[in-house]
């Protein structure tokens, strides 16, 4: 019984952060900021949900699959974010007007 209550608490916190991440995806001004908010919050939220499922289920094969899912999400989602950010910058999608500095652009112009 206690196990289920703790697991449900983890799931609730996870869904809350999922929601904040998606809100950031809608509200923030350009691709890079959206990527920041969405990657951090949705990764953490989904990991929280899977941890809650693991706590409720315990050490059977459902629980182990959830644990494997946590490891998998933590390894893959930053890599995908990095690839998308680099591709966006190289294909020339502009940063928002509020940007103060872009040292990547400066270095690229130096090389050419």
């Amino acid at each position: 019984m206690t196990r289920e209550v703790i697991g449900m608490a983890f799931i609730l916190v996870g869904i809350m952060f999922d929601f904040f991440g998606v809100l950031g995806l809608v509200r923030l001004p350009d691709v890079y900021n959206r990527l920041q908010a969405a990657t951090k919050c949705v990764t953490f939220g989904s990991a929280g949900i899977l941890l809650g499922v693991f706590i409720i289920q315990g050490f059977n094969n459902f629980g182990f699959k959830a644990l494997l899912g946590i490891v998998f999400i933590f390894l893959t989602s930053p890599v995908a974010a990095h690839a998308i950010a680099r591709a966006a910058h190289r294909s020339g999608i502009p940063l928002t007007k509020e940007t103060v500095v872009d040292q990547y652009q400066e270095d690229n112009e130096l090389k050419d």
Binding site: I15, D18, L25, V31, I49, A66, I73, S77, I84, S91
Partner: peptide, 20 residues
């Protein structure tokens, strides 16, 4: 790029949904 980000995020959301 915005659409690619959205599809990527949708994939991670669905994992949580399927767990529940």
């Amino acid at each position: 790029a915005d659409r690619i980000v959205a599809v990527d995020i949708l994939g991670i959301l669905i994992v949580g949904l399927l767990a529940i």
